[in-house]
Amino acid sequence: MDQLAPPSGSPLPGVSGNIGSSSTTAGPTREMLGGVRVETRFGGVDTLDEPITATIGRDLLSIFNKLVQVLYPIRKGAGREVLKDWDLWGPLILCLLLGIMLSVNAPPNQALGVFTSVIMIVCLGSLVVTVQAKLLGGRVSFFQGLCVLGYCVAPLNIAALVSCFVRVIYVRAPVAILAWAWCIWASVNFLDGTKIEAQRILLAVYPLLLFYFILAWMILIQ
């Protein structure tokens, strides 16, 4: 890790590295070694000889943290920093879960089609919505947008799970609508921070409405 230390003499005060999931980055230590100035850094976690369960556990914990942060975005401030460290594992897992839950309940001759269309809608949908937010002039990091939109699918997973077991339409419809509203609320909270002008925020939100509505609809009618 010390090989990656930037060649600048001293790190700028506002910039902090984020390697792995360590939050306490120790400052670089310098020493003279044979007339050459050497700079080393220690990330706070030694990941070389830890057991693999610890590695996976840390990743799962980071996914869980982001999930909580996306789905309950009340906590401002330090919480939003979690999202800067984006990953696509969480969205992948959520998307696959949704596809599996929907295709298990579909008629056998359509299961594959349902699975494919769910995966395609989630992937292309979040891609298009993120590009769209950028095109409308939003200040959003591309992969961060993908990550947040992927995590926002989680309420729909709950709705899909519920409708796996409950066949009554009077239960499924409110659950699906609630999940849809939750998705929208969570993702609009994220768009809030992208500084899109007020006159066109509706243009950025509308694709989200459409994207999550079609997924909610597929859950509802399965």
């Binding site: 090989q3 230390a5 600048s8 003499g9 050459v36 100035r37 050497v38 700079e39």
Partner: peptide, 15 residues
């Protein structure tokens, strides 16, 4: 293991 050496040219930027 030797790390990178900070070279003189970078210091000039900060000046």
């Amino acid at each position: 293991m030797a790390g990178y050496v900070s070279i003189e040219a970078d210091d000039r930027l900060e000046e």
